[in-house]
Write a protein that binds this DNA or RNA. Structure first.
Length: 494
RNA sequence: GCCAAGGUGGCAGAGUCCGGCCGAACGCAGCGGCCUGCAGAGCCGCCCAUCGCCGGUUCAAAUCCGGCCCUUGGCUCCA
Protein backbone atom coordinates (compact mmCIF):
# COMPACT_ATOMS: atom_id res chain seq x y z
CA UNK A 1 0.00 0.00 0.00
CA UNK A 2 1.59 3.21 -1.08
CA UNK A 3 1.06 6.72 0.08
CA UNK A 4 -0.63 9.01 -2.36
CA UNK A 5 -0.62 12.77 -2.04
CA UNK A 6 -2.10 15.77 -3.77
CA UNK A 7 0.77 17.56 -5.45
CA UNK A 8 0.12 21.23 -6.12
CA UNK A 9 2.76 21.14 -8.81
CA UNK A 10 0.68 18.87 -11.02
CA UNK A 11 -2.65 19.57 -9.41
CA UNK A 12 -3.15 15.85 -9.18
CA UNK A 13 -3.13 12.98 -6.82
CA UNK A 14 0.14 11.05 -7.18
CA UNK A 15 1.79 8.06 -5.58
CA UNK A 16 4.60 9.14 -3.34
CA UNK A 17 7.71 7.55 -4.69
CA UNK A 18 10.50 7.60 -2.16
CA UNK A 19 14.09 7.71 -3.29
CA UNK A 20 15.29 5.26 -0.69
CA UNK A 21 14.73 5.17 3.04
CA UNK A 22 15.21 8.88 3.59
CA UNK A 23 12.55 11.50 3.12
CA UNK A 24 13.66 15.10 2.91
CA UNK A 25 10.90 17.28 4.32
CA UNK A 26 10.99 21.07 4.35
CA UNK A 27 8.35 23.06 6.15
CA UNK A 28 7.96 26.69 5.26
CA UNK A 29 8.10 28.15 8.72
CA UNK A 30 7.09 31.24 10.53
CA UNK A 31 8.13 34.86 10.34
CA UNK A 32 8.80 35.59 13.98
CA UNK A 33 7.31 39.03 14.23
CA UNK A 34 4.48 38.19 16.59
CA UNK A 35 3.01 35.42 18.71
CA UNK A 36 2.04 32.34 16.75
CA UNK A 37 -1.67 31.73 16.36
CA UNK A 38 -3.82 28.69 15.67
CA UNK A 39 -3.56 29.20 11.94
CA UNK A 40 0.21 28.73 12.11
CA UNK A 41 -0.24 25.80 14.44
CA UNK A 42 -2.47 24.10 11.89
CA UNK A 43 0.40 24.00 9.44
CA UNK A 44 2.81 22.73 12.09
CA UNK A 45 0.36 20.09 13.15
CA UNK A 46 -0.23 18.66 9.71
CA UNK A 47 3.49 18.72 8.98
CA UNK A 48 3.94 16.91 12.28
CA UNK A 49 1.38 14.26 11.37
CA UNK A 50 3.07 13.77 7.99
CA UNK A 51 6.40 13.40 9.77
CA UNK A 52 4.98 10.94 12.27
CA UNK A 53 3.24 8.89 9.64
CA UNK A 54 6.25 8.65 7.36
CA UNK A 55 8.34 7.62 10.36
CA UNK A 56 5.72 5.07 11.37
CA UNK A 57 5.89 3.66 7.86
CA UNK A 58 9.61 3.18 8.29
CA UNK A 59 11.12 6.19 6.58
CA UNK A 60 13.99 8.13 8.01
CA UNK A 61 12.49 11.61 8.00
CA UNK A 62 14.80 14.61 7.73
CA UNK A 63 12.61 17.48 8.78
CA UNK A 64 13.79 21.06 8.45
CA UNK A 65 11.62 24.00 9.47
CA UNK A 66 12.88 27.54 9.18
CA UNK A 67 12.35 30.67 11.19
CA UNK A 68 12.34 33.89 9.23
CA UNK A 69 14.09 36.22 11.61
CA UNK A 70 14.93 38.97 9.13
CA UNK A 71 11.83 40.85 8.07
CA UNK A 72 10.44 44.36 7.93
CA UNK A 73 7.71 43.52 10.38
CA UNK A 74 10.28 42.38 12.92
CA UNK A 75 12.38 45.51 12.44
CA UNK A 76 9.25 47.59 12.90
CA UNK A 77 8.95 46.34 16.47
CA UNK A 78 12.38 47.42 17.60
CA UNK A 79 12.20 49.18 20.94
CA UNK A 80 8.66 48.07 21.59
CA UNK A 81 7.99 47.06 25.21
CA UNK A 82 10.77 44.75 26.29
CA UNK A 83 11.36 43.26 22.87
CA UNK A 84 14.87 44.61 22.52
CA UNK A 85 16.82 47.25 20.69
CA UNK A 86 17.70 45.45 17.53
CA UNK A 87 16.05 43.16 15.05
CA UNK A 88 17.82 40.03 16.28
CA UNK A 89 16.60 40.61 19.86
CA UNK A 90 13.01 41.05 18.73
CA UNK A 91 13.24 37.90 16.60
CA UNK A 92 14.80 35.81 19.36
CA UNK A 93 12.09 36.89 21.74
CA UNK A 94 9.44 35.42 19.47
CA UNK A 95 11.51 32.39 18.51
CA UNK A 96 11.64 31.47 22.18
CA UNK A 97 7.88 31.75 22.49
CA UNK A 98 7.30 29.77 19.33
CA UNK A 99 9.55 26.92 20.43
CA UNK A 100 7.68 26.83 23.69
CA UNK A 101 4.38 26.69 21.78
CA UNK A 102 5.67 23.88 19.61
CA UNK A 103 6.72 21.85 22.63
CA UNK A 104 3.36 22.53 24.19
CA UNK A 105 1.66 21.15 21.10
CA UNK A 106 3.72 17.97 21.36
CA UNK A 107 5.23 18.36 17.90
CA UNK A 108 8.04 16.09 16.78
CA UNK A 109 11.22 18.08 16.74
CA UNK A 110 12.63 19.01 13.38
CA UNK A 111 16.29 18.14 12.83
CA UNK A 112 17.12 21.78 12.29
CA UNK A 113 15.35 25.09 12.78
CA UNK A 114 17.49 27.31 10.58
CA UNK A 115 17.33 31.11 10.81
CA UNK A 116 17.86 33.49 7.96
CA UNK A 117 20.33 35.54 9.97
CA UNK A 118 22.60 32.50 10.22
CA UNK A 119 22.63 31.79 6.49
CA UNK A 120 23.80 34.98 4.87
CA UNK A 121 26.86 33.35 3.28
CA UNK A 122 24.70 30.68 1.65
CA UNK A 123 22.13 33.21 0.55
CA UNK A 124 24.74 35.49 -0.97
CA UNK A 125 26.37 32.52 -2.72
CA UNK A 126 23.10 31.52 -4.22
CA UNK A 127 22.37 35.03 -5.46
CA UNK A 128 25.84 35.24 -6.96
CA UNK A 129 25.25 32.00 -8.82
CA UNK A 130 22.01 33.39 -10.19
CA UNK A 131 23.72 36.58 -11.31
CA UNK A 132 26.54 34.61 -12.94
CA UNK A 133 24.07 32.46 -14.79
CA UNK A 134 22.20 35.48 -16.05
CA UNK A 135 19.03 34.84 -14.05
CA UNK A 136 19.46 37.86 -11.83
CA UNK A 137 20.69 41.42 -12.19
CA UNK A 138 21.89 44.15 -9.90
CA UNK A 139 20.11 47.48 -9.88
CA UNK A 140 20.88 50.31 -7.49
CA UNK A 141 22.50 47.99 -4.96
CA UNK A 142 19.57 45.58 -5.06
CA UNK A 143 19.40 42.32 -6.96
CA UNK A 144 16.33 41.03 -8.77
CA UNK A 145 15.44 37.71 -10.29
CA UNK A 146 14.70 38.05 -13.99
CA UNK A 147 11.58 35.96 -14.53
CA UNK A 148 11.94 36.17 -18.29
CA UNK A 149 14.98 33.88 -18.04
CA UNK A 150 13.08 31.05 -16.41
CA UNK A 151 10.64 29.42 -18.78
CA UNK A 152 8.84 27.45 -16.12
CA UNK A 153 7.92 30.54 -14.14
CA UNK A 154 4.33 30.12 -13.03
CA UNK A 155 4.26 26.34 -13.19
CA UNK A 156 3.23 25.91 -9.58
CA UNK A 157 0.48 28.49 -9.44
CA UNK A 158 -0.47 28.47 -13.13
CA UNK A 159 0.19 32.15 -13.43
CA UNK A 160 1.05 33.76 -16.74
CA UNK A 161 3.85 36.27 -16.39
CA UNK A 162 2.00 38.76 -18.60
CA UNK A 163 -1.05 38.60 -16.35
CA UNK A 164 0.82 39.37 -13.18
CA UNK A 165 0.59 42.66 -11.46
CA UNK A 166 3.91 43.99 -10.30
CA UNK A 167 5.54 42.40 -7.27
CA UNK A 168 7.04 44.74 -4.73
CA UNK A 169 6.50 48.35 -3.84
CA UNK A 170 6.78 51.51 -5.95
CA UNK A 171 10.47 52.15 -5.50
CA UNK A 172 11.29 48.58 -6.38
CA UNK A 173 9.28 48.71 -9.55
CA UNK A 174 11.37 51.42 -11.07
CA UNK A 175 14.47 49.30 -10.52
CA UNK A 176 13.11 46.22 -12.22
CA UNK A 177 13.23 45.14 -15.84
CA UNK A 178 9.99 43.23 -15.70
CA UNK A 179 7.19 44.01 -13.28
CA UNK A 180 7.05 40.36 -12.26
CA UNK A 181 10.73 40.27 -11.25
CA UNK A 182 11.23 39.86 -7.54
CA UNK A 183 13.91 40.93 -5.08
CA UNK A 184 16.71 38.60 -4.05
CA UNK A 185 18.66 41.28 -2.26
CA UNK A 186 17.57 44.69 -1.07
CA UNK A 187 20.02 47.54 -0.67
CA UNK A 188 20.36 49.16 2.72
CA UNK A 189 18.36 48.84 5.92
CA UNK A 190 14.61 49.08 6.32
CA UNK A 191 13.48 52.59 5.50
CA UNK A 192 11.54 54.37 8.28
CA UNK A 193 8.51 54.76 6.06
CA UNK A 194 8.49 51.05 5.28
CA UNK A 195 8.77 50.19 8.96
CA UNK A 196 5.96 52.62 9.68
CA UNK A 197 3.57 50.47 7.64
CA UNK A 198 3.94 47.73 10.20
CA UNK A 199 4.56 49.71 13.34
CA UNK A 200 2.06 50.07 16.13
CA UNK A 201 0.60 53.55 15.55
CA UNK A 202 0.58 54.20 19.30
CA UNK A 203 4.35 53.99 19.44
CA UNK A 204 6.71 56.69 18.48
CA UNK A 205 7.69 56.25 14.85
CA UNK A 206 11.17 55.14 13.86
CA UNK A 207 13.11 57.95 12.27
CA UNK A 208 16.27 56.17 11.16
CA UNK A 209 16.63 53.18 8.83
CA UNK A 210 16.37 50.08 11.00
CA UNK A 211 17.07 46.38 10.97
CA UNK A 212 20.23 44.41 10.33
CA UNK A 213 22.28 44.71 7.19
CA UNK A 214 25.06 42.57 5.80
CA UNK A 215 27.98 43.14 3.48
CA UNK A 216 27.55 41.72 0.02
CA UNK A 217 29.11 42.06 -3.43
CA UNK A 218 26.37 44.62 -4.11
CA UNK A 219 26.98 46.61 -0.93
CA UNK A 220 25.22 46.66 2.43
CA UNK A 221 21.77 45.20 2.37
CA UNK A 222 19.25 42.59 3.36
CA UNK A 223 18.09 39.34 1.76
CA UNK A 224 14.76 39.24 -0.02
CA UNK A 225 12.00 37.14 1.43
CA UNK A 226 11.97 34.18 -0.95
CA UNK A 227 15.66 33.38 -1.32
CA UNK A 228 16.06 32.22 2.28
CA UNK A 229 13.97 29.08 1.86
CA UNK A 230 15.94 28.02 -1.18
CA UNK A 231 19.24 28.59 0.57
CA UNK A 232 18.30 26.89 3.81
CA UNK A 233 16.58 23.96 2.14
CA UNK A 234 19.63 23.30 -0.03
CA UNK A 235 22.02 23.77 2.87
CA UNK A 236 20.32 21.48 5.33
CA UNK A 237 18.70 18.99 2.98
CA UNK A 238 19.70 18.87 -0.67
CA UNK A 239 19.25 20.57 -4.03
CA UNK A 240 16.24 18.34 -4.56
CA UNK A 241 13.99 17.62 -1.63
CA UNK A 242 11.07 15.23 -1.46
CA UNK A 243 8.29 17.13 0.23
CA UNK A 244 7.78 20.83 0.67
CA UNK A 245 4.93 21.77 2.98
CA UNK A 246 3.45 25.23 3.34
CA UNK A 247 0.26 27.20 3.78
CA UNK A 248 -1.94 27.56 0.75
CA UNK A 249 -1.64 31.32 0.95
CA UNK A 250 2.04 31.02 0.03
CA UNK A 251 1.65 29.24 -3.29
CA UNK A 252 2.10 32.52 -5.05
CA UNK A 253 4.39 34.29 -4.99
CA UNK A 254 6.55 32.69 -2.31
CA UNK A 255 6.68 29.08 -3.45
CA UNK A 256 6.62 29.99 -7.11
CA UNK A 257 9.65 32.18 -6.55
CA UNK A 258 11.43 29.51 -4.55
CA UNK A 259 11.10 27.15 -7.49
CA UNK A 260 12.34 29.75 -9.96
CA UNK A 261 15.44 30.78 -8.06
CA UNK A 262 16.36 27.27 -6.94
CA UNK A 263 15.93 25.54 -10.23
CA UNK A 264 17.56 28.36 -12.16
CA UNK A 265 20.57 28.06 -9.87
CA UNK A 266 20.97 24.29 -9.76
CA UNK A 267 19.28 23.05 -12.90
CA UNK A 268 17.66 20.42 -10.71
CA UNK A 269 14.07 20.01 -9.59
CA UNK A 270 13.67 21.83 -6.28
CA UNK A 271 10.88 19.90 -4.59
CA UNK A 272 9.24 16.73 -5.85
CA UNK A 273 5.95 17.04 -3.98
CA UNK A 274 4.36 20.32 -2.97
CA UNK A 275 1.78 19.88 -0.26
CA UNK A 276 -0.35 22.82 0.74
CA UNK A 277 -2.27 23.09 3.96
CA UNK A 278 -5.65 24.82 3.80
CA UNK A 279 -6.23 27.89 5.90
CA UNK A 280 -7.94 28.09 9.23
CA UNK A 281 -11.11 30.14 8.94
CA UNK A 282 -12.70 32.26 11.61
CA UNK A 283 -16.14 33.57 10.89
CA UNK A 284 -15.61 33.38 7.17
CA UNK A 285 -12.11 34.84 6.98
CA UNK A 286 -8.71 33.29 7.33
CA UNK A 287 -7.19 33.66 10.74
CA UNK A 288 -4.31 36.08 10.43
CA UNK A 289 -2.24 38.50 12.39
CA UNK A 290 -3.11 41.36 10.08
CA UNK A 291 -6.86 40.80 10.42
CA UNK A 292 -6.56 40.63 14.20
CA UNK A 293 -8.97 37.70 14.42
CA UNK A 294 -6.48 35.26 15.85
CA UNK A 295 -6.30 33.04 18.87
CA UNK A 296 -2.71 32.58 20.01
CA UNK A 297 -1.29 29.12 20.51
CA UNK A 298 -0.32 30.00 24.06
CA UNK A 299 -3.84 31.03 24.97
CA UNK A 300 -5.32 28.01 23.25
CA UNK A 301 -3.03 25.64 25.11
CA UNK A 302 -4.04 27.27 28.38
CA UNK A 303 -7.68 27.15 27.61
CA UNK A 304 -8.15 23.82 25.83
CA UNK A 305 -5.02 21.75 26.40
CA UNK A 306 -2.87 19.99 23.87
CA UNK A 307 -5.06 16.96 23.28
CA UNK A 308 -8.17 18.94 22.47
CA UNK A 309 -6.17 21.11 20.10
CA UNK A 310 -4.60 18.13 18.39
CA UNK A 311 -7.98 16.43 18.12
CA UNK A 312 -9.36 19.62 16.65
CA UNK A 313 -6.76 19.61 13.88
CA UNK A 314 -7.19 15.88 13.37
CA UNK A 315 -10.83 16.48 12.53
CA UNK A 316 -10.17 17.93 9.08
CA UNK A 317 -7.97 16.87 6.19
CA UNK A 318 -4.89 19.01 5.74
CA UNK A 319 -5.83 20.22 2.29
CA UNK A 320 -9.24 21.53 3.30
CA UNK A 321 -10.02 24.74 5.02
CA UNK A 322 -11.02 24.33 8.64
CA UNK A 323 -13.43 26.38 10.71
CA UNK A 324 -12.38 27.56 14.15
CA UNK A 325 -15.22 28.43 16.47
CA UNK A 326 -16.45 27.69 19.94
CA UNK A 327 -18.59 24.92 18.50
CA UNK A 328 -15.90 23.22 16.47
CA UNK A 329 -13.52 23.25 19.41
CA UNK A 330 -16.07 21.86 21.80
CA UNK A 331 -16.80 19.10 19.35
CA UNK A 332 -13.11 18.27 19.35
CA UNK A 333 -13.21 18.27 23.13
CA UNK A 334 -16.03 15.72 23.11
CA UNK A 335 -14.16 13.55 20.64
CA UNK A 336 -11.05 13.60 22.76
CA UNK A 337 -13.00 12.91 25.96
CA UNK A 338 -14.61 9.95 24.31
CA UNK A 339 -11.25 8.48 23.34
CA UNK A 340 -9.65 9.16 26.68
CA UNK A 341 -12.53 7.72 28.68
CA UNK A 342 -12.58 4.52 26.68
CA UNK A 343 -8.83 4.18 27.02
CA UNK A 344 -8.91 4.73 30.76
CA UNK A 345 -11.87 2.42 31.18
CA UNK A 346 -9.91 -0.32 29.43
CA UNK A 347 -6.94 0.28 31.71
CA UNK A 348 -9.10 0.30 34.82
CA UNK A 349 -10.74 -2.93 33.76
CA UNK A 350 -7.34 -4.56 33.37
CA UNK A 351 -6.42 -3.57 36.92
CA UNK A 352 -8.87 -6.19 38.06
CA UNK A 353 -7.30 -8.79 40.38
CA UNK A 354 -8.22 -11.73 38.19
CA UNK A 355 -7.18 -10.23 34.92
CA UNK A 356 -7.02 -13.47 33.05
CA UNK A 357 -8.80 -14.16 29.82
CA UNK A 358 -11.76 -16.41 30.29
CA UNK A 359 -13.94 -15.18 27.47
CA UNK A 360 -13.38 -13.96 23.98
CA UNK A 361 -14.83 -10.67 22.82
CA UNK A 362 -14.86 -11.38 19.13
CA UNK A 363 -16.15 -7.95 18.20
CA UNK A 364 -13.47 -6.09 20.08
CA UNK A 365 -10.69 -8.33 18.85
CA UNK A 366 -11.82 -7.92 15.29
CA UNK A 367 -12.16 -4.14 15.58
CA UNK A 368 -8.64 -3.85 16.98
CA UNK A 369 -7.18 -6.13 14.34
CA UNK A 370 -8.80 -4.21 11.53
CA UNK A 371 -7.92 -0.85 13.01
CA UNK A 372 -4.27 -0.96 11.97
CA UNK A 373 -5.10 -1.85 8.42
CA UNK A 374 -7.86 0.72 8.14
CA UNK A 375 -5.78 3.50 9.65
CA UNK A 376 -3.02 2.63 7.27
CA UNK A 377 -5.36 2.85 4.31
CA UNK A 378 -6.73 6.18 5.53
CA UNK A 379 -3.34 7.76 6.22
CA UNK A 380 -1.89 6.57 2.95
CA UNK A 381 -4.85 8.15 1.24
CA UNK A 382 -3.38 11.64 1.28
CA UNK A 383 -3.12 11.68 5.09
CA UNK A 384 -6.84 11.36 5.68
CA UNK A 385 -6.70 12.09 9.38
CA UNK A 386 -10.41 12.32 9.99
CA UNK A 387 -10.97 8.91 8.52
CA UNK A 388 -8.16 7.54 10.67
CA UNK A 389 -9.61 9.18 13.76
CA UNK A 390 -12.97 7.64 12.93
CA UNK A 391 -11.26 4.28 13.27
CA UNK A 392 -9.91 5.15 16.68
CA UNK A 393 -13.34 6.32 17.77
CA UNK A 394 -14.70 3.04 16.49
CA UNK A 395 -12.27 1.28 18.79
CA UNK A 396 -13.51 3.41 21.67
CA UNK A 397 -17.03 2.28 20.94
CA UNK A 398 -15.99 -1.37 20.74
CA UNK A 399 -14.18 -1.12 24.09
CA UNK A 400 -17.16 0.57 25.76
CA UNK A 401 -19.54 -1.94 24.27
CA UNK A 402 -17.58 -4.83 25.62
CA UNK A 403 -17.25 -3.32 29.08
CA UNK A 404 -20.92 -2.46 29.04
CA UNK A 405 -22.25 -5.78 27.90
CA UNK A 406 -19.88 -8.49 29.02
CA UNK A 407 -20.25 -10.32 32.31
CA UNK A 408 -16.61 -11.29 32.14
CA UNK A 409 -13.96 -9.28 30.42
CA UNK A 410 -11.67 -10.43 27.65
CA UNK A 411 -8.48 -9.03 29.11
CA UNK A 412 -6.34 -9.95 26.18
CA UNK A 413 -8.65 -8.07 23.86
CA UNK A 414 -8.60 -5.09 26.19
CA UNK A 415 -4.83 -5.06 26.31
CA UNK A 416 -4.68 -5.18 22.55
CA UNK A 417 -7.05 -2.24 22.41
CA UNK A 418 -4.90 -0.31 24.88
CA UNK A 419 -1.86 -1.00 22.72
CA UNK A 420 -3.73 0.24 19.67
CA UNK A 421 -4.69 3.47 21.40
CA UNK A 422 -1.06 4.01 22.30
CA UNK A 423 0.36 3.06 18.91
CA UNK A 424 -2.08 4.93 16.71
CA UNK A 425 -3.44 7.58 19.04
CA UNK A 426 -0.15 8.15 20.83
CA UNK A 427 2.62 7.51 18.36
CA UNK A 428 0.92 8.55 15.13
CA UNK A 429 -1.44 11.24 16.36
CA UNK A 430 0.63 12.54 19.25
CA UNK A 431 -2.22 12.32 21.73
CA UNK A 432 -1.56 11.66 25.40
CA UNK A 433 -2.23 7.96 25.58
CA UNK A 434 0.14 6.14 27.81
CA UNK A 435 2.15 9.03 29.14
CA UNK A 436 0.62 9.33 32.54
CA UNK A 437 2.49 12.57 33.04
CA UNK A 438 1.02 13.03 36.49
CA UNK A 439 3.11 14.45 39.25
CA UNK A 440 3.77 13.00 42.70
CA UNK A 441 1.18 15.04 44.56
CA UNK A 442 -1.53 13.62 42.36
CA UNK A 443 -1.50 10.36 44.25
CA UNK A 444 -2.13 12.23 47.49
CA UNK A 445 -4.95 14.08 45.81
CA UNK A 446 -6.33 10.78 44.60
CA UNK A 447 -6.27 9.40 48.11
CA UNK A 448 -8.07 12.48 49.39
CA UNK A 449 -10.74 12.23 46.73
CA UNK A 450 -11.18 8.57 47.56
CA UNK A 451 -11.62 9.51 51.20
CA UNK A 452 -14.41 11.93 50.27
CA UNK A 453 -16.00 9.30 48.09
CA UNK A 454 -15.94 6.80 50.93
CA UNK A 455 -17.80 9.27 53.10
CA UNK A 456 -20.23 9.91 50.27
CA UNK A 457 -20.81 6.21 49.79
CA UNK A 458 -21.76 5.93 53.44
CA UNK A 459 -24.27 8.75 52.99
CA UNK A 460 -25.72 7.04 49.95
CA UNK A 461 -26.08 3.78 51.75
CA UNK A 462 -27.86 5.65 54.52
CA UNK A 463 -30.18 7.12 51.90
CA UNK A 464 -28.88 10.64 52.47
CA UNK A 465 -28.84 11.48 48.78
CA UNK A 466 -28.92 15.21 49.37
CA UNK A 467 -25.63 15.08 51.17
CA UNK A 468 -24.17 12.63 48.67
CA UNK A 469 -25.15 14.88 45.78
CA UNK A 470 -23.74 17.92 47.52
CA UNK A 471 -20.38 16.16 47.87
CA UNK A 472 -20.46 15.23 44.23
CA UNK A 473 -21.20 18.83 43.26
CA UNK A 474 -18.43 20.11 45.48
CA UNK A 475 -15.96 17.72 43.90
CA UNK A 476 -17.14 18.75 40.44
CA UNK A 477 -16.45 22.36 41.36
CA UNK A 478 -12.87 21.31 42.11
CA UNK A 479 -12.58 19.62 38.74
CA UNK A 480 -13.18 16.07 39.91
CA UNK A 481 -15.78 14.27 37.86
CA UNK A 482 -17.55 11.52 39.80
CA UNK A 483 -19.30 8.67 38.08
CA UNK A 484 -21.39 6.11 39.90
CA UNK A 485 -21.57 2.58 38.66
CA UNK A 486 -22.68 -0.76 39.94
CA UNK A 487 -19.45 -1.44 41.83
CA UNK A 488 -19.06 1.96 43.44
CA UNK A 489 -17.98 5.38 42.30
CA UNK A 490 -15.06 6.22 40.05
CA UNK A 491 -13.60 9.61 39.40
CA UNK A 492 -11.32 11.44 37.04
CA UNK A 493 -9.62 14.79 37.11
CA UNK A 494 -10.78 17.17 34.41
C1' G B 1 -9.53 41.20 -14.28
C1' C B 2 -6.28 36.75 -13.79
C1' C B 3 -4.86 32.15 -10.88
C1' A B 4 -6.12 28.53 -7.15
C1' A B 5 -9.16 25.83 -3.64
C1' G B 6 -14.00 24.89 -2.30
C1' G B 7 -19.83 24.62 -2.16
C1' U B 8 -22.29 17.52 1.09
C1' G B 9 -27.77 16.93 6.90
C1' G B 10 -29.30 21.66 12.52
C1' C B 11 -23.60 22.10 13.11
C1' A B 12 -19.04 20.15 11.77
C1' G B 13 -16.82 17.13 8.30
C1' A B 14 -15.07 12.34 5.37
C1' G B 15 -16.26 10.41 0.70
C1' U B 16 -14.97 13.19 -5.32
C1' C B 17 -8.28 10.99 -7.91
C1' C B 18 -10.23 4.95 -9.31
C1' G B 19 -18.84 5.99 -11.07
C1' G B 20 -21.97 0.95 -8.31
C1' C B 21 -20.46 -1.70 -1.26
C1' C B 22 -22.98 6.27 -0.42
C1' G B 23 -30.45 4.47 0.75
C1' A B 24 -23.73 9.14 2.16
C1' A B 25 -18.58 7.58 7.49
C1' C B 26 -16.84 9.54 12.37
C1' G B 27 -18.51 13.18 15.74
C1' C B 28 -21.53 17.20 18.00
C1' A B 29 -26.50 18.78 18.86
C1' G B 30 -31.75 16.68 19.22
C1' C B 31 -35.30 12.49 20.36
C1' G B 32 -36.53 7.52 22.38
C1' G B 33 -34.95 3.04 25.20
C1' C B 34 -31.48 0.31 28.60
C1' C B 35 -28.59 1.21 32.99
C1' U B 36 -29.04 4.57 37.52
C1' G B 37 -31.87 6.77 43.91
C1' C B 38 -30.73 11.04 40.60
C1' A B 39 -27.03 12.97 37.32
C1' G B 40 -23.11 11.84 34.24
C1' A B 41 -20.63 8.33 31.42
C1' G B 42 -21.68 4.17 28.46
C1' C B 43 -24.65 0.92 25.28
C1' C B 44 -28.87 0.23 21.68
C1' G B 45 -32.04 2.73 18.33
C1' C B 46 -34.15 7.01 15.83
C1' C B 47 -34.29 11.74 13.57
C1' C B 48 -31.97 15.20 9.81
C1' A B 49 -29.32 15.15 3.03
C1' U B 50 -33.30 17.60 -4.02
C1' C B 51 -24.74 15.94 -2.14
C1' G B 52 -24.68 24.84 -5.04
C1' C B 53 -27.83 25.36 -9.84
C1' C B 54 -28.83 23.68 -14.98
C1' G B 55 -27.81 20.31 -18.74
C1' G B 56 -25.07 15.94 -20.62
C1' U B 57 -22.60 10.88 -20.57
C1' U B 58 -23.91 6.01 -18.35
C1' C B 59 -27.55 0.17 -16.93
C1' A B 60 -25.65 3.29 -12.72
C1' A B 61 -23.09 10.00 -10.69
C1' A B 62 -21.95 13.44 -4.49
C1' U B 63 -18.21 11.17 -7.72
C1' C B 64 -17.11 11.91 -15.06
C1' C B 65 -18.10 16.17 -18.96
C1' G B 66 -20.05 21.28 -20.18
C1' G B 67 -22.23 25.95 -18.61
C1' C B 68 -23.68 29.15 -14.66
C1' C B 69 -24.01 31.10 -9.49
C1' C B 70 -21.68 31.72 -4.81
C1' U B 71 -17.63 31.44 -0.93
C1' U B 72 -12.54 31.50 0.49
C1' G B 73 -7.35 32.27 -0.66
C1' G B 74 -3.54 34.54 -3.87
C1' C B 75 -1.82 38.49 -7.48
C1' U B 76 0.86 43.77 -1.16
C1' C B 77 3.17 41.30 4.53
C1' C B 78 1.21 36.39 5.38
C1' A B 79 1.09 29.21 7.49
Amino acid sequence: MTLSVTNTLTGEREDFEARGDDVLLYVCGLTVSDDAHLGHARLWMHADIMHRWLAYEGYDVHHVENFTDVNEKIAARIGEDDLGDDEADVAEHFVGDVIRDMRGLNLMRAEVYPRVSEHLPEIIDLIETLVERGHAYESNGSVYFDVSTFDDYGKLSNQQVEELEAQGNESERSEKRNPADFALWKAGAVAPETAAEHRDPDLEPLTEPCGQTWESPWGEGRPGWHIECSAMSMTHLDDTIDIHVGGRDLVFPHHENEIAQSEAATGEQFARYWLHVGLLQTEGDKMSSSLGNFFTVTDALDEFGVDVIRTFYLSTAYGSEQTFSEKTVSEAEERWNRLERAYEAAIDACDSPDARTKVEAAGLRETTAELYENVRAAMNDDFNVREAMAELLGLARAVNKHLDEADEYDYRALREAIEAFEAIGGEVFGLSFGDSGEGGDVSVAEDLVQLVLDVREAEREAGNYDRADALRDDLAALGVEVEDSGDGATFRFE
